[in-house]
């Protein structure tokens, strides 16, 4: 029993250490890929960004709509239904935008990345690259990692913007909150620091989700089962990491 715990802890620490080394190798190789082979990065931004764009927009719209409804019915008890815009903006920019985007991004683009890289490994494509004297880490992994890191904050911004639109549609057009009050209150209460908090979160989540997806794919056992497991692990571990980090960043920001 104690032995099992010992081995689990040691195993976890080993993996965590290896993950950090892997992260460092990605970072070291990032600048020359970003500046030297920018087209590869653009391709990946398009891949993972457009992959997630539709679900981000649809989800953002409905989450915003729900915020409008909930905000209105709750705030109406205090005769403060005009604040529904502020309520929605706070929720979206600081929390729901980055977090839900990251979860959706992990589910859509993260899994695609992990399974793509895992399959490349299983079908010897990575070995073939090494045999052609091309290191797969900068050529395959770094562009995908950077693509994820760049698209995640953009997706979170799209999510929040569409969410506000949804909240406006429900709050102003449907429930009759005054449009001027909706925007004016939002403008006067919201600080730039609130926006920054959201941006920082979305960047951190982008790094974490992309890192985990690339890592899981690269370390997948090169079989059908192994790739499947890597895909699942990407979603599960990303989701947990995002929620824990969200708590930590929020705690630091307050």
């Amino acid at each position: 029993m104690l032995r099992d715990i010992y081995f689990t802890v040691v195993g976890f620490l080993r993996t965590f250490g290896a993950l950090q080394l892997f992260f460092l190798r990605l970072l070291v190789n990032s600048p020359h890929i970003f500046f030297g082979r920018f087209r590869l990065v653009v391709q990946q931004v398009q891949n993972s960004g457009t992959l997630s764009l539709v679900i981000i927009m649809v989800s953002g719209f409905f989450v915003g709509g729900v915020l409008g409804l909930q905000g209105y019915s709750n705030l109406a008890r205090f005769n403060a239904e005009d604040s529904v815009g502020t309520f929605a903006a706070f929720s979206l920019l600081k929390e729901l935008g980055p977090v839900i985007s990251a979860l959706l991004f992990a589910g859509r683009a993260g899994t695609a990345l992990a399974s793509e890289i895992g399959l490349m490994k299983a079908t010897d494509q990575l070995s073939a690259m090494e045999m052609m004297a091309v290191d797969p880490l900068p050529r395959v992994l770094v562009p995908r990692f950077l693509g994820g890191v760049i698209s995640m904050p953009l997706l979170a911004a799209v999510f929040s913007a569409i969410g506000l639109l949804g909240a406006h549609l429900v709050g102003v057009n449907l429930l009759g909150v005054d449009a001027g009050a909706f925007w004016q209150q939002m403008q006067s209460t919201l600080d730039m620091s609130d926006v920054y908090e959201g941006i920082i979160k979305s960047v951190v989540f982008g790094v974490v989700v992309s890192l985990l997806a690339v890592w899981e794919g690269y370390n997948a056992i090169p079989t059908a089962e192994g790739v499947g497991r890597a895909t699942t692990r990407t979603v599960v571990i990303s989701a947990i990491a995002v929620l824990i980090l969200d708590f930590m960043i929020t705690a630091m920001a307050i």
């Binding site: 793509e116 010897d124 494509q125 073939a128």
Partner: peptide, 9 residues
């Protein structure tokens, strides 16, 4: 390689 290992993308 055995199955060619062409880059599929």
């Amino acid at each position: 390689f055995q199955n060619g290992a062409l880059l599929t993308d």
